[in-house]
Simulated assay, not measured.
Amino acid sequence: MIEAIVVKQFPCGYFTNMKYIFEAIKKDNQYNWLITDYECNYYPDDLIKPNEDYIWLDNESLVRIVENNDIQFIWGVFSGFPKNISKKKILENNLPYANGYDGFWSLETNIQHPLAEVELVSWDSSLFLAISKNKKIITDIQKNFFHTESLKEYVDE
């Protein structure tokens, strides 16, 4: 079953600083990450460059980057994949996107990439969405962010 929430407030005064998300899910996060359709306030690391179609990072590299930098992801889709799925297999499918994707605002929200287990979305620096097959990730985010609601309720408002 897919769980989906909206985070309405971040502790740093602006939305979508992924440091706080990865602090919340660090214990249960054993994924490789495909980052697509992203735009940042700055690009602090050679592993996250502007104007690329995608970024492919193991969990340890991504956590190191977001923990050591205050990067605001204005736009971006972080798709989490089990480590046994190859990058080659993942890239055989369409890349997920945030800007212009209407599927978020449907009552039947799904993860865009068919092989992903989690989708974390920075949406126009004003909203953060977490969609996951792993309920523990949703629960960990809810424990660390007091202003959340189900995406279904948010869409239905």
Results as ranks from 00 to 15, higher is better:
residue 90 I to K: 04
residue 119 E to K: 01
residue 92 E to S: 12
residue 37 D to C: 09
residue 65 I to S: 00
residue 152 K to H: 11
residue 60 E to W: 10
residue 81 F to H: 13
residue 66 V to G: 02
residue 132 S to V: 04
residue 33 W to R: 04
residue 1 M to N: 13
residue 6 V to W: 02
residue 122 S to Y: 00
residue 132 S to R: 01
residue 118 V to Y: 07
residue 11 P to G: 08
residue 105 W to V: 13
residue 36 T to Y: 02
residue 152 K to F: 14
residue 42 Y to F: 12
residue 155 V to E: 11
residue 112 Q to F: 13
residue 9 Q to L: 10
residue 69 N to M: 14
residue 129 L to Y: 15
residue 6 V to C: 05
residue 44 P to S: 05
residue 99 N to F: 12
residue 118 V to K: 07
residue 14 Y to L: 08
residue 78 F to A: 10
residue 42 Y to H: 09
residue 143 K to P: 02
residue 121 V to Y: 05
residue 43 Y to P: 03
residue 106 S to K: 03
residue 116 A to Q: 12
residue 140 D to K: 02
residue 4 A to W: 08
residue 3 E to Q: 04
residue 45 D to N: 07
residue 40 C to N: 02
residue 97 Y to F: 15
residue 120 L to E: 08
residue 146 F to K: 10
residue 52 E to I: 00
residue 36 T to L: 01
residue 114 P to D: 12
residue 45 D to Y: 04
residue 46 D to H: 08
residue 79 S to A: 15
residue 65 I to P: 02
residue 36 T to N: 04
residue 103 G to T: 13
residue 106 S to A: 06
residue 22 F to D: 04
residue 81 F to Y: 15
residue 153 E to V: 06
residue 71 I to M: 03
residue 45 D to S: 10
residue 98 A to N: 09
residue 39 E to A: 06
residue 66 V to K: 00
residue 36 T to P: 04
residue 32 N to P: 15
residue 145 F to R: 03
residue 20 Y to L: 00
residue 50 P to K: 09
residue 54 Y to G: 07
residue 114 P to G: 09
residue 4 A to H: 05
residue 10 F to K: 00
residue 31 Y to E: 14
residue 63 V to D: 06
residue 32 N to A: 12
residue 118 V to R: 06
residue 93 N to P: 01
residue 51 N to F: 15
residue 112 Q to S: 11
residue 49 K to S: 12
residue 120 L to F: 13
residue 21 I to F: 11
residue 71 I to L: 05
residue 17 N to L: 01
residue 71 I to Y: 03
residue 157 E to S: 11
residue 99 N to A: 11
residue 126 S to H: 05
residue 71 I to C: 01
residue 126 S to V: 10
residue 19 K to D: 06
residue 2 I to G: 07
residue 26 K to P: 09
residue 81 F to N: 09
residue 78 F to N: 07
residue 18 M to L: 02
residue 23 E to G: 02
residue 57 L to N: 09
residue 39 E to H: 07
residue 76 G to A: 10
residue 135 K to M: 13
residue 130 A to F: 11
residue 49 K to L: 15
residue 48 I to G: 03
residue 35 I to S: 07
residue 59 N to T: 06
residue 123 W to L: 14
residue 62 L to F: 11
residue 2 I to M: 12
residue 37 D to F: 09
residue 150 S to H: 02
residue 27 K to M: 13
residue 102 D to S: 14
residue 143 K to G: 07
residue 79 S to T: 13
residue 66 V to R: 00
residue 113 H to S: 08
residue 153 E to L: 06
residue 100 G to M: 08
residue 23 E to D: 08
residue 31 Y to L: 14
residue 61 S to F: 06
residue 90 I to Q: 07
residue 131 I to T: 01
residue 62 L to P: 14
residue 124 D to K: 09
residue 142 Q to V: 14
residue 101 Y to T: 05
residue 143 K to R: 03
residue 41 N to S: 04
residue 116 A to R: 02
residue 82 P to D: 14
residue 7 V to A: 01
residue 2 I to E: 11
residue 88 K to C: 13
residue 89 K to L: 15
residue 77 V to I: 10
residue 114 P to K: 08
residue 95 L to G: 09
residue 49 K to R: 13
residue 39 E to L: 06
residue 5 I to S: 11
residue 56 W to E: 11
residue 56 W to H: 07
residue 85 I to C: 14
residue 128 F to N: 10
